[in-house]
């Protein structure tokens, strides 16, 4: 497994853990924990999108000379996930936990089929295209993560 694949896949697993923790709190009807855990999950997702859209995808597009291919679809799917995340936030804001769980179930499938594409294809391809600049791209993503507002 290449270093970009490993770094980014670890990010997915981290988001998964936060997703499951938030969902568990909602399922228990614990509103306070639900809100704080969802916030942590939402923030991690936003960070991950930002790392890809601002660092990894541009590097990939430049190295592969292709801006209309895989990365275009990945950006599109990020937007779909942002919409569902907004619906989850709205459900929590009105204490509608049933609605949250339904949106969460939808997000889970959307998110995982997206992750499969990235982990199976986009990341391994990034490792190949960015063989010499992988360290720099990961460093750029790390810095982005630290700078991003929470």
């Amino acid at each position: 497994m290449g270093q970009i694949t490993r770094f980014m896949s670890d990010g997915h697993r981290h988001c998964d853990e936060l997703f499951a923790a938030a969902e568990e709190a909602v399922d228990n009807g614990d509103l306070v924990a639900s809100r704080s855990r969802f916030q942590a999950f939402h923030t991690a997702m936003t960070h991950h999108f930002a790392m890809e859209e601002q660092a990894l995808f541009p590097a990939f597009e430049e190295a592969s000379g292709n801006t209309m291919g895989p990365t275009r679809v990945m950006r599109l799917e990020h937007q779909q996930m942002r919409d569902v995340l907004a619906a989850m936030a709205a459900a929590l804001a009105t204490d509608d936990l049933e609605e949250y769980l339904g949106e969460a179930e939808t997000l889970l499938i959307l998110m995982q089929q997206h992750n499969i594409k990235e982990e199976q294809m986009l990341y391994p391809m990034s490792d190949r295209f960015l063989e010499n600049s992988g360290d720099a791209v990961i460093q750029a993503m790390r810095e982005l993560q630290e700078d991003s507002p929470v």
């Binding site: 592969s64 292709n66 291919g69 895989p70 275009r72 679809v73 990945m74 594409k117 294809m121 391809m125 190949r128 295209f129």
Partner: peptide, 9 residues
């Protein structure tokens, strides 16, 4: 590397 047939549609 080119991407023969790769489609993310």
């Amino acid at each position: 590397m080119n991407l023969p047939g790769l489609s993310f549609e």
